[in-house]
């Protein structure tokens, strides 16, 4: 299946913004200037207290599970560099996450390699506004399924401060034309609804969704 065309829900995101959310965003931007938000751990530190201390999302959505835009992304499992289980639930439950950016990567993919600094830059710029980024490494440079060490190497190599996981069974390959890499998936973190799935990194499209949702 070719999924190189973008299908977005940007207009829906615009409708969703309320006055309270706008105030929250302004407060977060103000805090961003004060705290110099930069790492995944720091994201919560730069979010307003009412966001950090507010009610947590605990029940991962289970309705309308699917693989296409508009459907709910399943609670997929991966493995951390330390060899521990990592579920998408972690991103869903993280306070302040509004928009998730899930990206596939492999050691043989020079396009993926070139993309990493851009992902880190997006994280640095928008984590405090609710952007959660995750990279899932599915193969190493010799085309072998990724193991936790590959995720560790990837994170170290690019100095990434957001989650990097190993996707050994390549579960994300079910969501796009896996003949091409990388995949960039944008997900509404509050509903886990798939907003868009693209192959290749399209900065303009990504920023359009970010601006609409954050």
């Amino acid at each position: 299946m070719a999924l190189s065309r973008v299908s977005t829900r940007a207009s829906t995101g615009a409708v969703k913004r309320s006055a309270a959310q706008l105030l929250l965003a302004l407060a977060a931007v103000g805090l961003l200037g004060l705290t110099g938000c930069g790492s995944d751990d720091d994201a919560a530190a730069c979010l307003p207290p009412e966001v950090v201390d507010g009610p947590l999302r605990t029940d991962y959505p289970t309705e309308n599970i699917g693989r296409s835009t508009g459907e709910t992304l399943e609670n997929l499992s991966f493995v951390t560099p330390e060899g521990e289980s990592f579920e998408l639930r972690s991103l869903y439950e993280q306070p302040g996450n509004k928009l998730l950016m899930i990206v596939t990567a492999s050691g043989w993919c020079s396009a993926c390699i070139e993309e990493q600094p851009k992902l880190q830059a997006l994280h640095d710029a928008f984590a405090c506004r609710g952007l959660g980024v995750m990279v899932a490494v599915f193969e190493d440079q010799n085309f072998a399924p990724a193991v936790p060490q590959d995720a560790a190497n990837w994170q170290r190599r690019f100095e990434l401060t957001f989650p990097v996981v190993a996707d050994e069974p390549f579960v994300l390959g079910n969501y796009y034309d896996a003949d091409l890499t990388p995949m960039v998936m944008l997900v509404d973190a509050e509903t886990m609804e798939i907003i868009s799935v693209e192959t290749g990194y399209n900065e303009a499209n990504v920023r359009a969704v970010i601006n609409a949702y954050l």
């Binding site: 492999s106 043989w108 993919c109 020079s110 396009a111 993926c112 070139e114 085309f143 896996a178 003949d179 091409l180 890499t181 990388p182 192959t199 290749g200 990194y201 399209n202």
Partner: peptide
């Protein structure tokens, strides 16, 4: 294994 730079976008994608 091939990586292709697309025209006109300049986007880079890699093929399995």
């Amino acid at each position: 294994q091939a990586c292709i730079t697309l025209s006109p976008s300049g986007m880079l994608k890699c093929i399995r």
